[in-house]
Simulated assay, not measured.
Amino acid sequence: MLNLRQIHHIAIIGSDYQASKHFYCDILGFTLQGEFYREERDSWKADLALNGQYTIELFSFPQPPKRPSRPEACGLRHLAFNVDDIEQSISVLTASGVFCEPVRIDPYTGKKFTFFNDPDGLPLELYES
């Protein structure tokens, strides 16, 4: 067996670096740990942390291809974040102009969850702990 310990990071490519950085930092609350412009690739890379733990590498590339999404495409389906109060979290997102789907109940756990999208349509989920 490979003996994996945990997920180290998630890499996300945004079509508009400033819009993505604003969304993940100012709306979702990630902390910018480092930011690097890679001239040879005309690309930005940002290291984002959640509660002090390095979590997301946010990239930009000129004219990245669109992500296939619907109907369900093969590959990463969505990223999910735990929250204590889903209604309060939805209020914060809504006040920032982010649309959230109606709250659903997980039929296996009885927990509340909802989906929303980042600026490029990447599906994200809030899951009440």
Rank of each mutant, 00 (worst) to 15 (best):
N3A: 10
N3R: 10
I7S: 09
H8S: 06
H9V: 07
H9E: 02
I10H: 00
I10W: 00
I12R: 02
I12V: 14
I13K: 07
Q18I: 04
Q18H: 05
Q18F: 01
Q18Y: 00
Q18L: 11
A19Q: 14
A19F: 02
A19L: 07
A19R: 11
S20E: 04
K21F: 00
K21H: 09
F23V: 02
F23R: 00
C25T: 08
D26C: 08
D26A: 12
I27N: 00
I27F: 00
I27K: 00
L28I: 01
L28K: 06
L28H: 00
T31E: 14
T31R: 01
L32D: 01
L32I: 06
Q33N: 14
Q33E: 15
G34L: 09
G34S: 15
E35Q: 13
F36H: 12
Y37L: 04
Y37G: 00
Y37P: 05
Y37R: 08
E39H: 07
E40C: 09
E40V: 14
R41T: 08
D42C: 08
S43I: 09
S43R: 13
S43E: 10
W44I: 01
W44F: 11
K45F: 02
K45D: 01
L48I: 06
A49V: 07
A49D: 05
G52Q: 02
G52I: 00
Q53S: 05
Q53N: 07
Y54A: 07
Y54I: 09
I56Q: 02
E57W: 10
F59L: 13
F59A: 10
S60F: 02
P62S: 11
P64G: 04
P65R: 08
R67P: 04
P68E: 11
E72W: 12
A73D: 08
A73T: 11
C74T: 15
L76I: 14
L76Y: 07
R77G: 09
R77L: 06
H78I: 04
F81L: 14
D84Q: 12
D84W: 01
D85C: 06
I86E: 14
I86K: 13
E87D: 15
E87V: 08
S89W: 05
S91D: 15
S91R: 13
V92G: 00
V92R: 15
V92N: 07
L93A: 05
T94W: 03
T94S: 12
A95F: 05
G97M: 05
V98A: 01
C100R: 01
E101Y: 12
P102G: 06
P102S: 09
V103S: 02
R104L: 11
R104T: 04
I105S: 10
I105M: 10
I105E: 11
D106L: 07
D106N: 14
P107S: 11
Y108I: 10
Y108D: 15
Y108P: 02
G110T: 02
G110E: 01
K111S: 05
K112E: 03
F113H: 12
F113A: 04
T114V: 07
F115L: 08
F116W: 04
F116V: 01
P119S: 14
P119W: 07
D120N: 15
D120G: 11
G121N: 08
G121V: 09
P123I: 07
P123W: 05
P123H: 03
P123T: 11
L126Q: 08
Y127H: 12
Y127T: 01
S129M: 13
S129C: 09
